[in-house]
Design a protein around this nucleic acid. Sequence first.
DNA 1: TGGAGATCCGTTGTTACGTCA
DNA 2: TCTGACGTAACAACGGATCTC
Length: 228
Amino acid sequence: MLDKTESASFPTKVEPSTSSLDSTLTTIRKNKRNKNKRRFSNEQIRSMETMFESESKLEPKTKLQLAKQLDLQPRQVAIWFQNRRARWKSKQLERDYNLLKADYDARSSFTIRVHKKGEAYFTSTGTATLKKLNDLRRQKEKEDSRSLDGNSTDCDSDKCEPEQKPGVSSDLRLSDDDENNHTMYLGEEAAHLMNSANPILSSPGNWSTFGSVLDQSCSTSQWWEIWP
DNA sequence: TGGAGATCCGTTGTTACGTCA
DNA sequence: TCTGACGTAACAACGGATCTC
């Protein structure tokens, strides 16, 4: 669309020069550059804006027609569209930035809320729940040591169902209220994270891994710091 | 593969407008 | 209130780099 050989309404074309005259001619050209610069009329701008809304890049034929219609040089029309595209892109970047910022702010405030809820949780029911879990762990260790003392059992410990596990009373397991509290304090996602400990407890084969889960969660980082 | 034309991007110089002493 | 200097945003245009055919 843009053809640099097209002459603008202002004389800017410079004949090929020798290198010794380059700097002089450059100065002259710069002085001449916008000597008669004028702003386009409202009517010209309105027409080009209307055209820009339908197509941001002009076909050569359309450009010639528009230039003739507005009494401008085709090069002026081409440059106006070029600048208009740059302005549009700049605005678009600004819009995108604002959208991203709003999204970031929303996520940031969510993280802060969850952090506060997490603190409240661990200073209330969380403490009681962890105590309960540790009791379970200690009780399991006692039973294991008793089994190793030679007492026969009716079943292989790996095959026993948890409710048949001797000595593990149901009141030591996480209750429904505990699960409800997870949801109330932390929301669905965090509650799911906390309740994921229950399958481990209900399956004797996994009891050995429960200790490592606790250790890991305590020794590395707090769970809300790694939560997306 | 080289060339011509078109576009992009950064920049320049002018204009219009607001602020302030 | 007027005025001139100054700062600044918007704009038209340029030139080099890059892309496309």
